[in-house]
Design a protein around this nucleic acid. Structure first.
Lengths: 325, 325
DNA sequence: CAACATATGTCAACCGGTTAACATATGGGG
DNA sequence: CCCCATATGTTAACCGGTTGACATATGTTG
């Protein structure tokens, strides 16, 4: 690999001059600039970003921690984050926590050792305290840590509300909500809050199915739902906390001979592309993932630049009614 | 951020000694080791990996270039690559080429500037020549570049053969294959080779639908398939090059009132988790993604370590028969 | 002609580690 | 008592850029 010294020698100028060209600072004549660029070309030179990062104390790398990129929601999130990061000159170091606290912790340490400029946390397996300790810029996704750590979220309460109201409007008399663990104080729990509020207000009997501490296992979802629907065969409306869960629900209904949407209305969450791919297309509450991702990257950048940022960043959701309601 | 000097001072030893502890080299007494570790703990010290990378000329970062991680196949691939990389002490820098040649090229340059140890290329928008020029370790996914660049693939010919044979065995009389552009010399094209070979051998009429240069657009798939099936209503068997395409096919069939599998047999490819999630569950040719990913990481590692590696790494595929055939 | 903008060079320090070379000290084994 | 393994320190160079301080030279302008 050629170094800046090789370039300087080849172009017949000093190292300082090459650095000046590279960084566009100080006075440089067109002629010299051309000579330098030509030398770089000839040597196929590319500046060593590791050396630059060391000096600048800036790596232009963002660490992204997700539970697993194999999950469609996080895959889409990751794709968006990557796109915006790229557009702003950042690179993305991808970390899948696999919902394993120790892996997540190790990843956090690793990211710090590697001097990433900031971390976008979309996996939350650790105690809130652990996140508070972090000394580098962090933006969380859908979780409040402290009012020193900005977070990006969408209007979960409104999303839950719209979902239940749609179910009721479509005539459901007995409904259920399936969600992740409610022990963790995730913002997504507001969906359940809304679900209960509306159900109670309208005096509609309701059930809650809490999955274990964040599992993404299809089999588990199906089992839980099948148990629920056999025990409570009168349930005619399901609100699921993800589209994947909604697909599980559709499968179970098919198995139990319940027609969708005639016998059972189903509404998912996130509106991943999958939701409109399957048949019937899933009614879902859409989170503005693109905007949320863009905002996360922007927040990291603002933090790095030392700009003041808003702690709460809540974007609106949208109900996408399709064929399952 | 504390430095190694701060640690040395606090522990009352020299920088060299701290470095010795950190890297486990030379003689170190237990007492000193403890003192050093304690100082690190107290200072919350973590070695700066950027500085280390600079000196070692090793970043322990692998660049992964995929068309887009939002596509389930690449999302799963990415998840596996990440897991194996993590297990072996590597980090993953994620790059989505979005099938844009210039973005892919820029990413390659970026990865080089950032001194990644190697690149796993699962996106192939550039000319073969461009890849040959790369001076750093590269492993490609499903594409042959030259016999200096190892590649990981699965038995595409066999996969195509099994797919068509299953269709015929299930009684199809007129079949079609939908695939990406056949102009690029992708190894996946062997599936089409096999498709034609078998169809001709058995004298079954067949059709080919080539999508444009690698699009991942659902709408496009549906349009192409709908056109085909309205023009050739007698087609009763479809072999699709991905499970996403298979889902598009199912949608079109539903629209045209063709029952699956009675009126139309469908077989996808990859066996992403989606394939067994939707209803009816998709019959698909399974690529051993986990093994392929593991192998890719291992190959990069071997190349980095200067070990000899095999150029062709072809793993077996498996037919997963489900409900669409 | 003085003053200043433009253009380039030299030199050295710095970013935060790593390492080789060499010095020094201690304690145990033969 | 000598030799050697063990343990630690000192010093300096190095990885590949960046930057500030300062020197120098040329050309332009009022």
């Amino acid at each position: 690999m050629p170094t800046i010294r090789d370039v300087a020698e080849r172009a017949g100028v000093s190292v300082t001059t090459v650095s000046r060209v590279l960084n566009n600072r100080g006075y440089i004549s067109e002629a010299t600039r051309r000579k330098v660029y030509q030398a770089m070309e000839e040597l196929d030179y590319q500046p060593n970003e590791v050396a630059r990062s060391l000096f600048r104390k800036r790596s232009n790398i963002i660490g992204l921690i997700v539970p697993t990129v194999a999950h469609p929601f996080f895959a889409e999130l990751t794709a968006y984050v990557e796109a915006y990061a790229y557009a702003r000159g950042y690179k993305v170091l991808l970390c899948n926590s696999e919902l394993d606290a120790s892996k997540e912790q190790e990843y956090i340490w690793m990211l710090r050792r590697n001097q990433v400029d900031g971390i976008i946390m979309a996996s939350h397996t650790l105690e809130v305290e652990e996140y508070k300790k972090l000394s580098l810029p962090v933006v969380t996704f859908d979780r409040f840590i402290s009012n020193r750590i900005p977070y990006v979220t969408s209007d979960n309460y409104q999303g839950g509300k719209m979902a239940v109201e749609l179910l009721l409007q479509r005539g459901c008399r007995k409904i259920a909500h399936m969600c992740g663990s409610l022990d963790l104080d995730m913002l997504a729990n507001q969906r359940h809050r809304a679900f209960m509020d509306v159900a109670e207000e309208r005096q509609v009997p309701y059930f809650t199915v809490e999955t274990d501490i964040n599992v993404f296992e299809m089999g588990k979802y199906e089992k839980l739902l099948e148990d629920l629907l056999t025990q409570e065969p009168e349930i005619d409306g399901l609100f699921l906390n993800s589209d994947i869960m909604a697909i599980a629900a559709m499968k179970v209904c098919r198995k139990l001979g319940k027609r969708i949407p005639e016998d059972m209305k189903i509404i998912g969450y996130d509106d991943v592309s999958l939701a409109s791919l399957v048949s019937p297309q899933i009614t879902s509450v859409r989170q503005p993932l693109a905007e949320m991702s863009e905002l996360s990257v922007k927040l990291i950048e603002d933090l790095v630049e030392g700009r003041r940022v808003q702690v709460e960043n809540c974007l609106p959701v949208e109900l996408m009614e399709r064929e399952t309601t």
